[in-house]
């Protein structure tokens, strides 16, 4: 994973270097420690792009995002906020899975029927609704009309309901679509016909066999889902004033605090990378086919004819 991370950072770094108006130099002209400077000056490449890139990476790794106003307390602050965001994101993920997976499965099994069409319409609506629009609607319904839920703040569970819905909204459409296509794909497979020839009940076939295979595919695309959920979390934390890392991000954006922004972005990138790793593991666990492909780099065949 590390090489991929470095590669991505390299691409980003190079892009930033060539785009006009970018001040990436500020981050890569100093820092990284004197020993690094020593090496570079002896090689006469103090100001070369390689040196700048190395310093940039080292700075990021050290968590030194430059002299920001709050860089001193940045560490512990970030961790507290991180935990909060993680909770919110997790709830949102669970909600979108609970809604999306059954909906997608239903649509796939009853393909072309009324259920399928209804799910398609709902997916279209959900993906056309930006998170903040949904947030507005939710606040209208639950706060103003029914006076059920508190709009801002955090603490007791009620404060979490609407933000979770906003986060989930970003993910539901994608989850449904992915599940539907994965299950649909499995249902057309030969082994499903064989399962029916075995005389198994439809329910058993779908929920035991098809699910197991389809979920592998769905989980593999967890990283994409994570991006969507992150977007939702950004809006949710901003709208409902929840103290997560995304709120810090938006606040430092409005406050034009470049260093904090960079810090938050770096942390979020690392988190997404970890999600990537986890999703690969989970996919391998769910589908032995994927596991073997990963471990042995291709199908392994033993046994004679």
């Amino acid at each position: 994973m590390a090489p991929t991370f470095l590669a991505i950072m390299l691409v980003v770094f190079l892009l930033m270097s060539v785009l006009p108006g970018s001040n990436i130099n500020e981050f890569s002209s100093n820092g990284g420690g004197d020993w690094l400077d020593g090496i570079f000056s002896s090689l006469n490449m103090t100001d070369s792009i390689v040196a700048r890139y190395v310093r940039y990476i080292v700075n990021l790794a050290k968590g030194d995002f430059g002299e920001g106003r709050s860089s001193a307390g940045l560490g512990s602050n970030i961790f507290y906020r991180l935990g909060f965001t993680a909770k919110l994101a997790l709830f949102g993920f669970l909600l979108s899975a609970i809604i999306g997976i059954p909906a997608g499965t239903l649509a796939a099994v009853k393909r072309g029927g009324r259920a399928d069409k209804a799910v398609s319409v709902l997916t279209l609506v959900m993906s056309s609704l930006p998170s903040y629009a949904l947030a507005v609607v939710l606040v209208l319904i639950f706060c103003l009309y029914f006076n059920l839920l508190p709009p801002f703040g955090f603490g007791t569970p009620e404060y979490y309901i609407m933000p979770t819905m906003v986060v989930a909204a970003g993910g539901v459409a994608m989850t449904t679509r992915m599940t539907r296509s994965a299950v649909s794909g499995e249902l057309g497979s030969q082994y499903v016909m064989v399962l029916r020839a075995k005389g198994l009940t439809g329910r058993r076939i779908v929920w035991l066999h098809v699910m197991k295979n389809a979920l592998g595919t769905v989980v593999a695309s967890l990283t994409n889902l994570a991006s969507q959920l992150l977007c939702g979390t950004l809006i949710a934390e901003n709208f409902f004033s929840m103290p997560g890392i995304c709120q810090l991000l938006t606040k430092s954006i409005s406050g034009r605090n470049q260093h904090t922004v960079l810090g938050c972005v770096a942390v979020l990138s690392v988190i997404l990378m970890m999600v990537n790793i986890v999703s690969d593991f989970a996919a391998a666990l769910l589908s032995p086919r994927i596991k073997d492909a990963m471990v042995y780099g291709g199908g392994r065949q033993n046994g004679e004819s």
């Binding site: 991929t4 590669a7 991505i8 691409v11 980003v12 892009l15 930033m16 785009l19 006009p20 108006g21 970018s22 001040n23 990436i24 990283t223 994570a226 991006s227 992150l230 977007c231 950004l234 991000l249 954006i253 470049q258 922004v261 960079l262 972005v265 979020l268 990138s269 997404l272 990537n276």
Partner: peptide, 18 residues
């Protein structure tokens, strides 16, 4: 590699720098 970077993070990062 380019596609692995989540869009809005890249946008925020770019905006930050530019």
């Amino acid at each position: 590699a380019l596609g692995a970077i989540p869009t809005f993070l890249m946008v925020i990062f770019a905006e930050n720098m530019m």
